[in-house]
């Protein structure tokens, strides 16, 4: 069987998830190249292909109508589309501007009306095209990405965690941030990262988004009652990486 043809595409994002791909070291990276052919990857290579693509990793959010044809083109060319990183899966940090109306004036001042500065609501790429799998995280967990690729190569369905980060902290025997007089969103945040932040002494801010049915009233209650946040700050805290999911929550 021919090696699957893999490509990377980028939209509105920082391209940090693509950088994670260069951090495997020589052994894992060169081994991976024995199993897949990288055929297009603008940040790293000049080669382009007109042949069909088996797996497309799409990084970044859908933030302007002008990008829709390019996304549709990726979908048309690719057998499997993986939303790669939080900007692609939920619009991540980019969605922080979605509740604002003056962001253009704030950043560009008197030049805000220039037509090339157009930017609409930051949306996941699934708002424009069908997505087959999602690699969550800001940045992605590079080992989870390897696992997704490995599952697909073996014809298996990738397993994406749908339990909260608290589970991983218990497993790691990390002391709860609330017991350290801090706050945390691990109760409703999607696991799969291995919970490195609470272990390093900082709160989880749900950079992988929420689990599928987050108990958001309970989150707000914990942030106000246990961390002493004002109602407003508790609400704002919850939207750092998850503004679009908050909007969709019942």
């Amino acid at each position: 069987m021919a090696k699957p043809r893999v490509a990377f595409f980028d939209f509105t994002c920082c391209e940090g998830c693509q950088i994670e791909f260069t951090n495997y070291g020589d052994t894992a990276f060169l081994e991976l190249l024995k199993h897949v052919d990288v055929v297009e990857f603008r940040e790293a290579m000049s080669e382009k292909t007109v042949e069909p693509i088996d797996i497309a990793f799409v990084e970044g959010s859908f933030t302007r109508e002008a990008d829709r044809p390019r996304l549709e083109e990726v979908r048309r060319r690719a057998g499997i589309v993986i939303a790669y990183g939080q900007c692609a899966t939920t619009a991540g940090i980019n969605a922080l501007k979605n509740h604002q109306t003056d962001y253009r004036e704030c950043v560009y001042g008197r030049d805000a009306g220039m037509p090339h500065l157009d930017s609409a609501k930051a949306l996941p790429i699934s708002a424009a095209i069908k997505v087959d799998y999602m690699a969550f995280g800001c940045p992605v967990n590079k080992y989870e990405v390897l696992q997704i690729v490995s599952h697909l190569l073996h014809g298996k369905e990738p397993v994406i965690p749908n339990f909260p980060v608290c589970v991983e902290c218990k497993r790691n025997e990390t002391i709860c941030r609330y017991d350290e007089d801090d706050h945390c969103m691990g109760q409703v945040a999607r696991a799969g990262c291995g919970a490195p932040c609470p272990a390093a002494g900082i709160p989880c801010e749900a950079c992988r988004g929420f689990v599928d049915r987050p108990n958001l009233p309970a989150l707000k209650k914990v942030l106000t009652a246990r961390a002493g946040f004002s109602e407003k700050r508790a609400g704002d805290k919850a939207n750092m990486f998850t503004a679009n999911q908050l909007e969709q929550a019942p």
């Binding site: 933030t63 922080l96 704030c106 950043v107 500065l117 930017s119 801010e205 704002d236 750092m240």
Partner: peptide, 22 residues
């Protein structure tokens, strides 16, 4: 032609402990 992202607008109203992470 990079799509603009508006970070300076997004940090408004955030606690100082969150700003660097944004």
């Amino acid at each position: 032609p990079e799509a603009p992202r508006f970070f300076e607008a997004m940090v408004r109203g955030r606690h100082y402990s969150e700003v660097a992470r944004i």
